[in-house]
Amino acid sequence: MNIFRFSGDMTHLISILVLLLKIYATKSCSGISLKTQELYALVFLTRYLNLFTEFFSVYNTVMKLVFIGSSLVIVWYMRMHRVVKLSYDKELDTFRHYFLVVASFVLALLVHEKFTFQEIFWAFSIYLEAIAILPQLVLLQRSGNVDNLTGQYVFFLGSYRAFYILNWIYRYFTENHFARLISCISGLVQTALYADFFYYYFISWKNNKKLQLPA
């Protein structure tokens, strides 16, 4: 464990807490893409298949359970909660995210560490996470003004993988642990997708104005 990876995990955790706060406090999920939440639940379920077979540390196991649990709770809230589901932007959240799942799975079948069940699903989860934010970014552009908590959620979610990139660089030089090419390239693509969001987020913060994404 190093400071970069720990910061990344904490940033990721904060993004989830901010999203839970927004949904719980406002009893609304307007501006949140259910499709991105479903993709993230799939990412965690397929990435942590070794949850019960390999033990690294209490921290590692607890965080996996928190990520899987929170993503399922959020999907449940948005689909089933009698009040929250009414505020879901169903007509705006129309990204065909099934294509993202199929594309990631096909790519995982072609590019993976080893042709084993766990490795293919691990690669699938890495590829899927890189593009899982797309429905959310599209929804933000369509829904015009973005409420603060939603903006902060996306900001922290986009920042965490940037910390992981620093972690892979650090591990490469210190532990001679060459992070997998799969993680590195996907992590760079994932962070790059947030580039224009980060730009508008920074502008809104600098001018102290509401976050506006151009349609």
Binding site: R5, D9, H12, R47, N50, E54, F56, N60, M63, K64, F67, E113, W122, Y164, N167, R180, S183
Partner: peptide, 10 residues
Amino acid sequence: DPEVKVHDEL
């Protein structure tokens, strides 16, 4: 490298 790579990251 032969060492089995494990996914110790989240």
